[in-house]
Design a binder for these strands. Structure first.
Lengths: 263, 263
DNA sequence: AACTCAGTTCCAAATAATGGAACAAAAAGG
DNA sequence: CCTTTTTGTTCCATTATTTGGAACTGAGTT
């Protein structure tokens, strides 16, 4: 059953270890002191200390006066440049705007990366929530509309690789927490062409999503319209279905058109 | 003493080289093929190839089917996490909102990093420009309001380290392109407490900025209000001076108050 | 003063990166 | 169609870097 080697644990030599440490600090939800990282990483003191010094030196981490490590500004700079140059995002942007115009609710564009969905763009009217809150965010595939939409486009082999690595976690009473249910749900998504998130990730948040992927299946993504449950009932989600599907298809066409001629 | 060591040329072993390659790809303004990077980096083919393979393996770069390297999504994920957890940004946010409310124009928060200003946050009403366009962006210190404000807080030694490394580049007719003029300007900024950008970086764009730095001078930043020249004359900039200064001072106080007790 | 704990430095041994050259696959050119 | 050139990939003995245990520092306790 072609159980692909789980390369994630291998680590690409020095770089892999450095990234593991960086991620430990960057994704932690509290400021990390040296000892905190030490406990998590399990590396010898001397080794870890040098690794972190290197990260600081490179501007990927910052060591504040009180011995607290925080993510460095170089990360922001690199990510900003990469975001600005993302061709996919640029292609999709006008369709996201249009979809937002039609629905009046928040529109997301997310891409599959490993077992996560990473949000590439967002369009929303209300500035109430701090801008930027979603972009670059990573969420699990199995409990987001975009995630399920993306998964629905994969062939069984690719799907198996992802699914076998998932550790289901319950976020709400509606969260799907077993593989069988998820597979059933994906079958439904394949038939209907859209995926719903009925408060499976965050209580009070619902969405409809449709899959977007390029011909080579090298880019697997999804578009969604999201709204608060008190305002968005099933009828509204159903009403959005054709809109979301149309937006997703339009992005896909535009993508194929742009990528085709290059060759 | 301990003047910051200018190790930038040394490179932190393996990690430094990897980051140099990553930055080459991420900051380029066109998609890069292997050979393009090869020419720039000057490394042997075999070496560079392996380095880039490692970067791809780690998700920092992505190798598309047509042999084009693009920045990887992991960068976005890391940067998003770091942005969300930036304490400084969180402290400043409400004051930026207030300043935007008072002026009606775009407000920026930028931090000094090396010889660049990196924008940490932005508040603007009009959605016309794609959101996110500024955040994480890097601009030169010498031709931005925030940059000159930040520089004005530095002591002569620290300032000298930065200035001696600058390669002035002319962006507009008003851009400051020599050290002497810049030093004079900084003196004026120190006296008045605010820095102006009179279309020095982008034609048609003006701003007023005030410096923000913490007591230990480990964080050097600035706040600015920016507007288009056709709408923003010198009188308007002058009118904003007290507002910007007040916002900057308020952020500084809040910062000291929060960082003080921790100790 | 003695003790602890967090952070930092050191250096022989283990490991990973280097880079030149050979190989493979595509384009370009005749 | 075959040759040449360009581009991308792999190999492996040599070289440089990382490793990790232990020893050192220095601030905060008891």
């Amino acid at each position: 059953m072609a159980t692909e080697r789980n390369d994630e644990t291998v680590g690409t030599g020095t770089l892999g270890k450095a990234m593991a440490v960086l991620e430990t600090v960057a994704l932690a939800d509290r400021p990390m002191r040296f000892t905190d990282v030490l406990a998590i990483s399990g590396q010898p003191r001397g080794t870890l200390h040098r690794q972190m010094s290197h990260l600081v030196h490179e501007g990927l981490l910052e060591l504040r006066a009180d011995h607290v490590y925080v993510p460095g500004l170089r990360l922001l700079k690199l990510a900003s440049a990469s975001w600005a140059r993302s061709e996919f995002r640029a292609v999709a942007a006008p369709f996201l705007e249009a979809l937002h115009g039609e629905t009046g609710e928040t529109v997301h564009l997310g891409v599959l990366r490993g077992r996560e969905i990473i949000y590439l763009d967002k369009v929303e009217s209300r500035q109430a929530v701090r801008m930027n809150s979603q972009i670059g965010n990573a969420s699990p595939v199995y409990c987001t509309g975009v995630g399920k939409a993306a998964l629905s486009t994969l062939d069984p082999a690719a799907l198996d690789v992802i699914l076998s690595g998932i550790e289901f976690q319950r976020f709400t009473p509606q969260t799907i927490v077993d593989r069988a249910t998820l597979l059933g749900e994906l079958e439904a998504v394949r038939r209907s062409g859209v995926a719903f998130d009925r408060e499976e990730h965050e209580p009070g948040i619902r969405c409809v999503a449709a899959p977007v992927c390029d011909a080579a299946r090298s880019l697997v993504a999804g578009v969604s319209v999201t709204g608060p449950a008190y305002r968005v009932g099933q009828e509204k989600l159903d009403a959005w279905v054709p809109l979301v599907r149309r937006a997703a298809d339009a992005i896909k066409s535009e993508l194929d058109a742009r990528l085709g001629p290059q060759r």
